[in-house]
Design a protein around this nucleic acid. Structure first.
Length: 851
RNA sequence: GCCCAGAUGGCGGAAUUGGUAGACGCGAUGGACUCAAAAUCCAUUGAUGGCAACAUCAUGAGAGUUCGAUUCUCUCUCUGGGCACCA
């Protein structure tokens, strides 16, 4: 018997698949398609650890079974290589980011190849490739040149808006280009604006909210380094994602995604339906408030404005405590470290605007007007009607400042809104997305600014606008992108901000459909054929980032008629994390990282794959245990041993034949499988098929382990007695086929050996080539074979199991009860008792309720 | 604080719509094979009592519904994740 040498076998077949192009996907438009996608990785310098492949193995198993089931499978891989870490790495190692990315991609590819994935590498994409980001820029321009038409509830070209404005607004034509631009900027789906950013002078960079922590005095500092952070207003590019808030929220319902991911997105979008109500005041200014509780309008005791409210100045100048109020606002702004978006949850403060009263439109009551830092300027109208009786925050504020709390009856929200002339509106927590980074390593934004500030988009033929080479990637220290110090760049008037990391990843799944297209981001025919992603596998950390942004872009492309579906990912599955042995996340910093290369070297890729799928449920967090891998390795070895024996037997039979025919082969001349083993085989085929489709890989493997053990036992018995296996090699091949998605190398090796043997005619060697097991037809199970006619059922007395009996599956319940009541071990329990109730659950159990 | 998910042997985990809790794997103990070791195979392995047949108790804690609850309901504890003054 040959030794199981995983290194030899795995290398051999990886080479074979590569040279045979086993996994190459053609656009066969007649064949039914299946698109299995992994979230493409960011190729970091650290390479893959053992946790990364988990999702890829799961999706690979799906890709393989679908291929065998006759689908035309698209299963691509690529790299999301723009972004801060590459730039950081470049600075630290003094190497151009492009070079660093190239190097890291090579490492990644090497690691991928060792694990035996069935990716079609001819479709690889790389977001930093100018041929790729040309289309990222192109999509940006489409978004820039569009607005959201509220009547049609979809995006339309900005030219349509201009037409409308020309017709309806006489003065439009007289406006200067700059003035027009200003107005249009209010509509464009990609627009320029200013925003307060978290500026860290020491790092010379802008930080995201989650990159900031509080130091021991409660002051905001950078997470990295602990340097002070301040606010700074900066020119930015934005994406008007809020235009899609409603559709992004409501379309979630139709998606087959994990419930909690949908929940996270829903909360993030934060839809609330309410009313906008105007309060007249004692000065010549109204205060518009937003409320979801118009029914509490009679309970209003004061009105509060945010310190950043747009009209705050006009109120302050008319108040009798103007100096005090201005001082309060200044302090409030300083206090809010992370911008008004997420003011720290400290104690609420406020100040009354003395001398100004607001009038409750419901009953004409005069109430005081306050400024309070618990009101956010960026949500609703930036002003709130306070009802301490029904709102906890208003109550807290009232208690602190000794404001009255009154109990008034509730009224109908709709009626009262109408009565006071309010409007029904929907508000969202979600903000427009900032679409600019003051960084080098990102897609250049394809726009020109002229001296007067007029913006012109680049023409399509000018794309891609390639990143220029620079001498240094360090932040400029002024907050501007390193591109601002490239003379030629600035001379052309090119935008110096680059796109954020999520730009390239918002549409890459479309590029895989037609990755080499030079005329379009993808050809229409391909887009219509591959349509959308049937299964998307990735981590749940992208719930509010990538998964939301790509839905947004996709909806935009759908509105404009570029893609055939309004949602990109029909089904989504999240793989769970693999923690280290010590229960912590795998990280260089804890020194607990396990490299898959080492596992592959010692145990083999097939073992790694089986183990990672066997560890636990696919979507749950599990801890790595190198100790436990051995179980998966033993299983593979068992499969190997069985295979070697099948091969041996086949050889014996074929030797005894005088004139074997090539096509018939030895196996068909063997005895059919024994009943029980055949039955088990078919049950296993069913279980594995169904489990893979539901991504219950752990139980699928468990079922195959049971089958393998049974086969080996049977082999042992029959070989010892009569040298005649009871499992035909045809049946054994079916087992190999269902194992193939999990352990593609061993399965292929044994499959090829079994197939090529029958083709050897004495000294006449037939070319030992057979089509791959991975392109063979997935075995079917025989429903008739699976049914158990005799079943063991439990007999319970008052819910406690007292005996077990064997009955035929279609026995009538009365007969079953008779059998049970005459059973010796049951008799002793029912003697002297009366049977109150008899329950028979078909094929499962009998329960007798006795007094 | 609010929202979501989860808790089962020494460990990872199984358990169709409520129906024999602990499949499968790791580890452990004993045995076979071997000069020996490795590998492999066999047996045992939730707890307690008993020589045993067997009995009792067990799915984070407590209650409830039910003939029957790991599964459904309520309360609580802990763990993981999300949001964090969104009116």
């Amino acid at each position: 018997m040959k030794e199981y040498n995983h290194n030899k076998i795995e290398k051999k077949w990886q080479k074979f698949w590569d040279s045979e192009e086993t996994y190459k996907t053609e656009n066969k438009f007649k064949k039914k398609k299946y698109y299995v996608l992994d979230m493409f990785p960011y190729p970091s310098g650290a390479g893959l650890h053992v946790g990364h492949p988990r999702g890829y193995i799961g999706s690979d198993i799906l890709a393989r079974i679908r291929r065998m089931q006759g689908f035309n499978v698209l299963h691509p891989m690529g790299y999301d290589a723009f972004g801060l870490p590459a730039e950081q790495y470049a600075i630290e190692h003094n190497i151009h980011p492009r070079k660093a990315v190239e190097k890291n991609i090579k490492t990644f590819r090497g690691q991928f190849d060792k694990i035996g994935f069935s990716f079609d590498w001819s479709r690889q994409v790389n977001t930093t490739d100018p041929e790729y980001y040309k289309w990222t820029q192109w999509i940006f321009l489409q978004i820039y040149n569009s607005y959201y038409d509220l009547e049609q509830n979809k995006a339309r070209p900005i030219s349509e808006l201009i037409n409308k404005l020309e017709k309806t607004h006489r003065g439009w034509k007289e406006l200067s280009e700059i003035e027009k631009e200003k107005i249009l900027m209010e509509y464009r789906l990609a627009f320029e604006g200013f925003s307060e950013v978290n500026w860290c002078p020491k790092l010379g960079t802008v930080l995201a909210n989650d990159e900031i922590v509080d130091d021991k005095d409660g002051n905001p500092v950078s997470e990295r380094g602990g340097y002070p952070v301040e606010k700074k207003s900066m020119r930015q590019w934005f994406m008007r994602i809020t235009a899609y808030a409603d559709r992004l929220a409501s379309d979630l319902e139709g998606l087959n995604w994990p419930q909690h991911i949908k929940e996270i997105q829903k909360n993030w979008i934060g839809v609330s339906h309410g009313s906008e109500i105007e309060f007249k005041t004692s000065i010549d200014r109204n205060i518009k408030v937003f409320t979801t509780r118009a029914d509490t309008l009679f309970g209003v005791t004061y009105v509060v404005l945010s310190p950043e409210h747009t009209n705050i100045g006009e109120f302050i100048v008319q108040s009798s405590n103007m100096a005090e109020a201005s001082k309060y606002i200044r302090e409030a702004k300083e206090k809010s470290s992370k911008g008004d978006l997420t003011r720290d949850d400290k104690e609420k403060t406020g100040i009354e605007l003395k001398g100004i009263k607001a009038i409750n439109p419901a009953n004409g009551e005069e109430v005081p007007v306050w400024i309070g830092d618990y009101v956010l300027a960026s949500y609703g109208t930036g002003a709130v009607m306070a009802v301490p009786q029904h709102d906890e925050r208003d109550r807290e504020f009232s208690l602190k400042y000794n404001l009255p709390i009154i109990d008034r009856p509730l009224v109908d929200a709709k009626e009262i809104t109408k009565k006071v002339g309010g409007k029904f509106v929907t508000k969202y927590k979600m903000r427009d997305a900032i679409f600019a980074r003051q960084r080098y390593w990102g897609e250049p934004i394809p726009l020109r600014h002229d001296k007067n500030g007029l913006i012109t988009p680049l023409k399509e033929k000018e794309l891609p606008l390639k990143l220029p080479n620079v001498t240094g990637y360090e932040p400029t220290g002024t907050g501007e992108s390193p591109l601002a110090s490239v003379k030629a760049w600035v001379k052309e008037g090119y935008e110096t901000n680059t796109m954020p990391g999520w730009a390239g990843s918002s549409w890459y799944f479309l590029r895989y459909m037609d990755p080499k297209n030079k005329k379009n981001f993808a050809d229409k025919k391909n887009l219509e054929y591959w349509k959308d992603v049937d299964l998307y596998v990735g981590g749940q950390e992208h719930a509010t980032g990538h998964l939301l942004y790509s839905r947004f872009w996709h909806k935009f492309l759908f509105d404009m008629g570029y893609v055939p579906t309004s949602e990109p990912f029909k089904n989504l599955k999240n793989q769970g994390l693999i923690m280290a042995n010590d229960g912590r996340k795998m990280s260089k910093r804890w020194g607990n990282v396990i490299n898959p290369d080492e596992i592959v070297k010692t145990y083999g890729a097939d073992t790694l794959r089986v183990y990672e799928m066997f560890m636990g449920p696919f979507d749950e967090t599990v801890a790595w245990s190198t100790e436990s891998i051995i179980g998966s390795r033993r299983f593979i070895e068992k499969v190997w041993r069985i295979g070697e024996k099948v091969l041996e037997n086949q050889k014996n039979v074929s030797l005894s034949l005088t004139l074997p025919r090539v096509r018939v082969g030895a196996h068909t001349l063997q005895k059919p499988s024994s009943d029980s083993l055949l039955k088990l085989l078919h049950k296993t085929i069913k279980k594995v098929t169904e489990d893979i489709e539901a991504m219950r890989f752990n139980t699928a493997i468990s079922a195959m382990m049971i089958l393998a053990s049974e086969i080996e036992k049977e082999q042992g018995r029959t070989l010892d007695l009569q040298k005649d296996p009871t499992l035909s090699s045809e049946d054994y091949k079916k087992f190999l086929q269902i194992l193939a998605p999990f352990a593609p190398h061993v399965a292929e090796d044994l499959w090829q050996n079994l197939n090529s043997q029958g083709r050897t005619l004495g000294s006449l060697k037939v070319r030992p080539f057979h089509s791959s097991i991975h392109l063979s037809k997935w075995p079917e199970w025989d429903e008739k074979l699976i049914i158990d006619e005799e079943v063991k059922i439990a007999v319970q007395i008052n819910g406690k199991v007292r005996a077990e009996i064997e009955i035929s599956i279609d026995m009538k319940d009365t007969d079953v009860f008779t059998l049970v009541e005459n059973n010796e071990s049951i008799k002793k329990w029912i003697d002297g008792h009366t049977i109150i109730k008899k329950i028979y659950v078909k094929g499962r159990l009998v329960n007798l309720v006795i007094s």
